[in-house]
Design a protein around this nucleic acid. Structure first.
Lengths: 217, 217
DNA sequence: AAATATTTTTAGACTAATCTAAAAAAAAAT
DNA sequence: ATTTTTTTTTAGATTAGTCTAAAAATATTT
């Protein structure tokens, strides 16, 4: 089996590849894991020995099929646990991340399959992120930042880019929730802020906020 | 906070004191944790530094109030998780121990209080062991091994001594379940085995089995 | 294309938890 | 009251993961 730490490295590498599309640098991993580049290099050697990553000195890393499978299973567990916490234990979407970071390392195939069944095989987690299935298949729905839309466009909110509690709490206070219809009333040229309507309420949001709200049209 | 390993030592010490009533020896801990005496000595120094145990070289150990509290919270989490697994995720009582050994180290006060609420504040776990409350109070119900009873005595099964999957599975196959009424039909002097009636079925059990079934009269 | 800056790796040290082997203390046997 | 046995502790190594500082490789600038 893989250690807690190895699992966290694989997950970090997976997510970095997911957003950049390219191989991942030592420094990028160090920053993500909040450790030093030297530590990352050590771990990369170990993961390469275990055939979990493709690694050549100075050339960046990518995941092997095996490494990707491990990463996807960690992400599956993380997102299913988040779903469980929100749906059944009365947690808010901004409270579940740290607990799921711990729970994702619990090692039991039966446990995670039973949780999945208990939750009725959800497709997305409380933040709208897709949940990989038990074979590690990830169904990606393509979505766009709200900031890309034009005046009078309408869309449905499907996710967030920033997952920080403070951003999620801001959305709560603004009454912006997953599944809401959002209509762009106006685009303010001066600072690229938006006037939108959600839940029959009209409000202004900054371009920075709009960039972190994912929608489908 | 305390490490995973420290928590396991405290739990082991608590359980050894619980069954012997006395201070605990280095060797006893080593055997329980499945490690070597030298490793135990090292850890005892560390736990003593943290004021979690009373320890003087060669004199055995006991828990401080603080150490006992930590041990009881780990046991609380273990038993609540076992209950959750059995009651809501369709696990059998012989399957939950190893998973609960992992889950008991998840660190979140809110999580465990929500699980407790979700389960409706159960008093005992799936094996009949009492669940400490959130203040670390443990309600012990006194029970006796079935082997202590006399011919024609009746009793209710409330727990087990041996928690091994093979023993629990044996009880399942014999149709002996927590809460069942058990009546002693006969005591066979030769090998101290017992003829009992449970669920309207009559069967023979060895004295060894009877010693591991806890009952109240 | 050389000089400079940045990134990555290596070397060597540190911590937590473990181990084996030897020494010291306590308990049991004579 | 010695001697012997058992238990416990110490001393010194080992492993996983981390770190700092220095060296090597790559990338950027001029």
């Amino acid at each position: 089996m893989n250690s807690f730490t190895e699992e966290n490295y694989l997950k970090a590498i997976f997510k970095l590849i997911e957003q950049s599309g390219d191989t991942v640098t030592t420094n990028a991993i160090a920053e993500k894991i909040k450790t030093k580049a030297a530590s990352v290099t050590d771990m990369l050697k170990k993961l390469a020995d275990k055939k979990l990553i493709h690694y050549q000195k100075y050339q960046g890393v990518s995941l092997t099929k095996k490494g990707e499978k491990v990463a996807l299973m960690i992400i599956r567990k993380h997102r299913l646990w988040e779903m469980f916490l929100v749906e059944h234990l009365d947690f808010k979407w901004d409270e579940v991340h740290d607990i799921a970071e711990q729970l994702e390392h619990i090692n039991s195939d039966k446990l995670i399959e039973q949780i999945d069944k208990f939750l009725n095989h959800p497709k997305v987690d409380p933040h709208g992120d897709p949940i990989p299935n038990s074979n590690g298949k990830l169904q990606i729905q393509k979505s766009y930042p709200l900031s890309k839309l034009k005046k009078n466009d309408s869309c449905i909110m499907t996710g967030v880019v920033d997952h920080s509690p403070s951003f999620l709490q801001y959305l709560d206070r603004s009454g912006i929730t997953l599944g809401n219809e959002i209509k762009i009333k106006d685009l303010i040229e001066f600072d690229r802020s938006l006037q939108i309507t959600v839940n029959k309420r009209t409000l202004f949001i900054s371009n920075d906020v709009a960039k972190n709200i994912l929608v489908i049209t």
